[in-house]
Nucleic acid binder design. Structure first.
Length: 128
DNA sequence: AGGATGACATTAC
DNA sequence: GGTAATGCCATCC
């Protein structure tokens, strides 16, 4: 293997997602960058396999929009946490909204980055 | 072994 | 400013 254990990588992604503070969000690419392993699609897949006990709504795409189908459920969380939302003047649907990444994007502290980096390295190289 | 899929990113219009 | 098309990486059939 030496590439990445599915459960290990998923665990790392879930750990990052769980450490994101309320009102803040991260993109799939950012998590992949923090783990320094895999790509944005792998992060999304890991979250899809994750249980609902993790704040998956704090992880969204580069366009500032969560996964389709979960937008309605995620909107309640944003409203509850006070996340910066951008809603058009005439929304066609409840899912027609956007998160202001410029205001809601969160970046971990250097110590957090280091922890995440070695965590990603740990899962990327489970050691023989 | 090879091709298709997926909770995406980036670039171009 | 947002939408459309193309590419990337890893896993599953």
């Amino acid at each position: 293997m030496a590439r990445a254990d599915p459960a290990g990588y998923a665990g790392a992604v879930l750990d990052v997602t769980a450490m994101i503070p309320p009102g803040k969000v991260l993109t799939y690419g950012d998590i992949a960058e923090l783990l320094a392993c895999g790509g944005p699609r792998q992060v999304g897949r890991a979250l899809s396999l994750a249980a609902r006990d993790v704040p998956w709504w704090r992880v969204l795409r580069a366009g500032g929009r969560p996964a389709q189908g979960l937008a309605r459920e995620a909107r309640s969380r944003y409203d509850d946490e006070g996340t910066a939302l951008a809603v058009p003047a005439d929304p066609v649907d409840e899912d027609d909204y956007r998160v202001v990444l410029a205001e809601a994007r969160w970046w971990p502290s250097p110590a957090q980055q280091d922890a995440l980096a070695r965590l990603g390295a740990s899962v990327s190289r489970p050691a023989p």
